[in-house]
Design a protein around this nucleic acid. Structure first.
Lengths: 372, 372
DNA sequence: ATGAAAGCGCTAACAA
DNA sequence: TTGTTAGCGCTTTCAT
């Protein structure tokens, strides 16, 4: 019952009447200049199976100087109360994809720590000797740079530090925003508010820019009071921003929420304000992680997180096994979003449309209109 | 830029003018019978720091026959659409707790595969040579047994296979159910329906038994038609079960939902039926993963997942480092739940209470009443 | 077609 | 107080 000795290649070799080298050659698919006879091949495999032998991954790693370990550095978790389905999905699918390729993933969940967080992360990463590192939305370039500088393959996801030359996999936010807004416009909405983040990352800025561009393309004004930005993607923030835009006159007939967490808060605010969704106001959201479970189910832009993870793993494994062509610029993959239409979006009611037409005229200052 | 050779203990030894053994002794805290002078100590540390040396974990693992790796086997994911916050929280906190103790976690996310799933899992686990394995709600005893049989420390969480003698960490479901039902009763509810799972695991059965016991203690009937069981914890199921109990006459004034996913479906059903929560019906749920974000926020029983994970890691590390006392029966930890009271629970409205009093009389067959 | 030997980087026992 | 030696289990030359 206490730890029985594990079977080693020596056991298999002895039992099969061959050398350990032969065992290794057979089990690793007879690589190099080594030839093994069919007979030996069979015998070795049979013995290995009978004994339940599997090569010791640690010894193999030491010999090959490859740990077959990929580090995954998840996004920094803000103190949002609902967990992080996006981080979770990415990590889950990274794990599965890696396992399929014979790698395993160690997740580097740094405690929400202080300033020297980057130093600590870098040291930890280096001390673990991963074959490669996947960064999900790194908030600073330092750790990524440190890996690149030491020749450790790195890949960045979702919100990369573009200044660091690594392969990146991102989701086409422009398309997501466009689809969502087009959907609202197609339903007849012309007073659309934007709930977003004022974090200066380019991903946030480009989402807002895209929102404005789409409205402009439709000849719809985007008054400043309809653009509500807050510091973090929490439900409370979403509720607060919703209250803010509701106070506009005329109020919007539709809300574009930059995250499902915002949509949660928005629904609470609307519920409290006794504004019915989608009868009195439509809501479209981004992420599609909670949207389906809300009441009513919310139309939302889904990101292909599974594919993001799978591509990342494929890229990192390729870099590990084939070596990176550091000559040419790193590959950038952009994956499409999908719009899941649900009960929260509906044409604006007749009277609201009338109000809207009147309002448009007075609101039609050249905010962004006509440009682009 | 291409992979620079890593610093080894030889480098440090040479630079510091000592042997590699001394370096090892210094960095590992001068264990065994070895003494190192303060002077040497300082010099070695200085050199190590200057060179950015950290011992190669793979070499160390090979030498010490300990990989410092814990395998975490998450619960089988049913095809629920909303992700698995519980699995995620457990995995996240397992990871963090392990990192604090110098271990890292590899998560064994088996693809939802076919029958021989267990075989594959066992082989995979053994081939990775983890120092210990944490099982979250294993659905069969085989893999756990396999580890125990080979002397690999194992711990089971949440819904253990009690037949296998390992340390277990579970949450006090009886307390959770009791608190929730007591809360409803204290509000004045006497017609309380139960939405649960008919999966035969003891955890489910004991929840229902506990539900009945609490009602019995209060002298409240638990008619069979108020007990709605379905095969899986999905929102659809929750909605279906809700419809079922709503058709009872008299209908319940409160719902106990065995999982937040059920509560999601329940709210959809109630919304569709135009039954207001908590005005016309109260809802209390279990898990507290989605409850806070629903509309209205749902009263729910929270499980201390973080502590579950931390205890599990502490236990497994103790077993790894101190060796298990396989003589005495394995430790069983039961952690308390917490009831988070939110807007979904409220006293039943006057008229409903009246109906209830009349109804009680006709419903008072000796279903479970009086018995404790 | 196979075996012998070396060595990945480290630490634990034994010498000095 | 410190250095020497031996090996953890594997793969990979090189020699046969």
């Amino acid at each position: 019952m206490s730890k029985p000795r594990m079977i080693t290649s020596t056991d298999v070799a002895r039992e099969a009447g061959v050398s350990r080298a032969t065992v290794s050659a057979v089990l690793n698919g007879t690589q190099g200049n080594i030839r093994v006879s069919d007979e030996t091949h069979r015998r070795v495999r049979a013995v290995a199976a009978a004994l339940g032998y599997s090569p010791h991954p640690v010894a193999r790693a030491l010999r090959q100087q490859r740990s077959r370990m990929i580090a995954f550095v998840p996004r920094t978790m803000h103190a949002t109360e609902y967990g992080h389905p996006i981080a979770y999905q990415l990590s889950l699918h990274t794990d599965r994809a890696a396992a399929r390729l014979g790698y395993h993933v160690i997740e580097v969940n740094t405690e929400e720590s202080a300033t020297d967080h980057d130093e600590g992360l870098i040291d930890f990463l280096l001390s673990r000797r991963p074959d490669g590192v996947i960064f999900d939305a790194p908030t600073t370039p330092h750790a990524v740079e440190a890996m690149v500088a030491r020749g450790i393959p790195a890949v960045q996801l979702m919100r990369p530090q573009f200044a660091v030359a690594t392969p990146t996999i991102i989701v086409d936010a422009a398309q997501g925003v466009t689809d969502a807004v087009d959907h609202l416009v197609a339903l007849g909405h012309r007073r659309i508010a934007y709930l977003g983040s004022d974090d200066p990352h380019v991903a946030n800025r480009s989402r807002l820019a895209c929102f404005r561009a789409v409205l402009a393309r439709h000849g719809i004004p985007a008054p400043a009071e309809y653009i509500a930005l807050g510091p973090e993607y929490t439900a409370e923030q979403g509720a607060a921003l919703t209250w803010r835009v509701l106070r506009c006159s005329p109020p919007p007939t539709a809300l574009f929420s930059g995250a499902d967490t915002f949509a949660v808060g928005a629904l609470h605010a609307l519920h409290q304000a006794r504004i019915r969704v989608p009868d009195a106001i439509s809501l479209v959201s981004y992420d599609d992680v909670y949207a389906a479970m809300l009441c009513p189910p919310v139309t939302s832009v889904a990101q292909p997180l599974r594919e993001v993870a799978e591509r990342a793993v494929a890229l990192i494994v390729a870099a590990i096994e084939e070596g990176a062509d550091s000559a040419q610029p790193p590959i950038r993959i952009v994956l499409p979003t999908g719009l899941h239409i649900r009960a929260s979006t509906w044409p604006p009611s007749e009277e609201l449309v009338l109000v809207s037409l009147v309002a448009d005229r007075s609101m039609d200052r050249p905010e962004e209109t006509g440009r682009k």
